[in-house]
Write a protein that binds this DNA or RNA. Sequence first.
DNA 1: CAGCCTCCTCTACAGATGTAGAAGAATCTA
DNA 2: TAGATTCTTCTACATCTGTAGAGGAGGCTG
Lengths: 178, 178
Amino acid sequence: MRRELITDTAIRLVAEEGMRGLTHRAVDRRAGLPEGSTSAYFRTRKALVEGFVARLAELERLDLMPDPDDVAGSIARTLDSWLVERDRTLARYAAMLEATHHPELTSILAHSPREQATALAAMLGHEDPERAGAHFTAFLEGLLFYRLVGAGSTSGPTPGTQESVDDLRLAVEKALRP
Amino acid sequence: MRRELITDTAIRLVAEEGMRGLTHRAVDRRAGLPEGSTSAYFRTRKALVEGFVARLAELERLDLMPDPDDVAGSIARTLDSWLVERDRTLARYAAMLEATHHPELTSILAHSPREQATALAAMLGHEDPERAGAHFTAFLEGLLFYRLVGAGSTSGPTPGTQESVDDLRLAVEKALRP
DNA sequence: CAGCCTCCTCTACAGATGTAGAAGAATCTA
DNA sequence: TAGATTCTTCTACATCTGTAGAGGAGGCTG
């Protein structure tokens, strides 16, 4: 339980201050724990990073498989929820960037929406489901990134509003067209 | 000139080790400069970060406006070149994430491909160029991110090859369809 | 009850980091 | 050439960070 308090705090810290802000003592302070606690649970920094990434993966292990009656709508709602959970999504980006030079994180992070997207594309009758799935995934990834940290973060509709969901749905619908 | 050596080294460092690896002394060592050099040119870490981001923006200030005779192809080639320039693009992602909690970086980074994308969408006869431009930009952003740090980084074609450009072109063509 | 085990807190310490200033080297100006 | 100005290197120091171990609090087992 202390363990989760620590990893959850780490996620918030990374979202707000970047990987650089993730230190044992900073987590202690932020979580209101006595100094040394984080260091006791995660002896090395590597362990702390892996712990926080694992927690992230655990929190995100919701399936992307959409409601067949409203594919675009349900995907749009999922995306919007990720925009609302800003901290978690930002922390995930930081973790993905980190995985670039620490390959062991890749396996922890892999929640592989790609296979799901491929399956989805096949389901919808694309001729090249493999590629279409990849492009579709890329598009979702891009929508999210664009709206959260890219140019769309200042200009787009406010996450959590109907307008935001509608905007996303329009984009998703377009991406789904074969 | 020493200044550029320092900022260019900083870009490489950030790409390879993340923001956490960006320290005055690390830059000195990496650039083969005597200890203290980076600290002399950029007295504070904030200055160092701003310096490296500014250099990044300077290097990327190439216009995205594509060849009208081969819109998809020229965009695909630009994207592929960004995949090839892996370090620079990774550093840009790190900088964008950093800008999330250091707003002053936003203005340095703003190279606004969005307006260009909007104009492009209008040119191609979209009914809602504003929105279509945003979606198009998001899609490009996503393609890049997906292939460089996302799931596509392990499975996609090798950047710099014809196959890579072709794959990107297919995606871009699709995104351009009204 | 005694002993044991787990969880937690505290403290220590070597090394890294941010920052600043002193002093030397190089270049320019007159 | 002499002096002034800028560029460069070196050094110092307070603080932060990663890491480890000693020991205490509390509960569980027999």
